[in-house]
Design a binder for these strands. Structure first.
Lengths: 208, 208
DNA sequence: CGCTACATGTAAGGTGTTACATGATTCC
DNA sequence: GGAATCATGTAACACCTTACATGTAGCG
């Protein structure tokens, strides 16, 4: 049981804040937890079905089945507390951008620069959306959950800012490498090698 | 084809730096890419088999099968470039710590504080290991790949530092919430509840 | 009347992990 | 000789996404 249940945790948690339909659950998870969590329909509906079987969740209008929201039960709240108390299992990291950059010598400096700039743009967007989320907090239905939401929003902001300032450093490292290429070594075959006679002017995006 | 191939990318990339056995591949991936990538044996061996079938990789001592390292071929290098050129597919985020903190009202402030402190400890360890990795860089076999490795190490450092400073902010938010709990709402059943007493003030989080 | 959003589900398929099975080599 | 490490693989399972299938409700 303790194996995954991560979906159950997210679903029960969301329902602990307010009753919702499966559809709304997915929307909420996407909008509110989006920057650190995700679930798809293919997981939410089976999870809801199982939770209902176990009596951790019920539909308010149980008989008619007519689009009534799911509601967490007392047993469900207890289970949620259990799940939340388990040690967090951290994901295997898989960062496609860093993977590509690590093998950047094969890819060439120009493509690397593009990857970094793209990552920076995304981080800036994330930062903006975190700021927006922070503004919306007061108007929302979160009540006493607000400080906890704020903690996650702050995490998103720190993470986005870290990416932005990393991008600056990374561009500088790339530029240095091009000006003073490591003495040894063949340039790898077939790649769009750096042209001779460069005048790159790397756009180092202002001071640190 | 463009679907996953992420494992192929990592394997070919690693072999583009130096020939290795499957076992060594896993070690290298764990040690060197560990902070942003991971692969398990169950993926590496099948991937190697397929790459060999496709002629992208070969064993230097093909006949005897005697623990000779795998070696990337010219075709393999070309394929690697292709794979690296594909747009990076970012993972669905799944941060167990933030999930637990978001539903922190159910979990209680004490447990939340523990989670944050634990995350900070891990980030400090990561930061230390990044520093160590940076020191080892010069001594390693990476050659012209050094600047690229440096870019990923820098990413790890920024990320770790972001987590550390987030932890500070998060603890402050938690403390504020306990001093001035949000006005409305029932405290959830069973949890180590926050005391009553009101004063809305949403805590706009300390200076950046 | 058709488009969009709400709503619920399933089936197929890909991805990735774990545990098991096996054996060689090296070092103490 | 026994332990640790190197080395290779597989099979079962868990997880998750995608695409499909279906239907309702409201609105312009």
């Amino acid at each position: 049981m303790a194996r995954s249940d991560q979906t159950q945790t997210a679903v029960l948690g969301a329902l602990s804040i307010m009753p919702m339909s499966g559809y709304a659950l997915r929307e909420e998870i996407k909008n509110t937890l989006g920057h650190f969590w995700s679930e798809s329909f293919g997981q939410i509906y089976p999870a809801l079905a199982e939770l209902q079987r176990e009596g951790l969740v019920r539909r308010q209008d149980d008989v008619s089945g007519r689009s009534s929201p799911y509601d967490i039960t007392a047993a469900g709240t207890a289970r949620l507390l259990e799940l939340l108390s388990e040690p967090p299992q951290h994901n295997k990291p898989r960062n496609g951008v860093l993977l590509r950059l690590f093998f950047g010598r094969q890819l060439g400096p120009a493509a690397c620069r593009r990857l970094i700039l793209e990552a920076r743009v995304q981080a800036e967007q994330q930062l903006a959306s975190m700021t927006a989320a922070r503004a919306e907090l007061a108007g929302g239905e979160l009540g006493a959950n607000i400080p906890y939401a704020l903690i996650t929003i702050t995490a998103g902001e720190h993470s986005a800012r870290a990416t932005i300032s990393w991008a600056t450093d990374a561009l500088a490292i790339l530029a240095d490498a091009e000006h003073a290429p490591a003495a040894s070594s063949d340039t790898p075959g077939g790649t769009p090698a750096t042209p001779p006679a460069t005048s790159p002017a790397i756009v180092p995006a202002a001071a640190t």
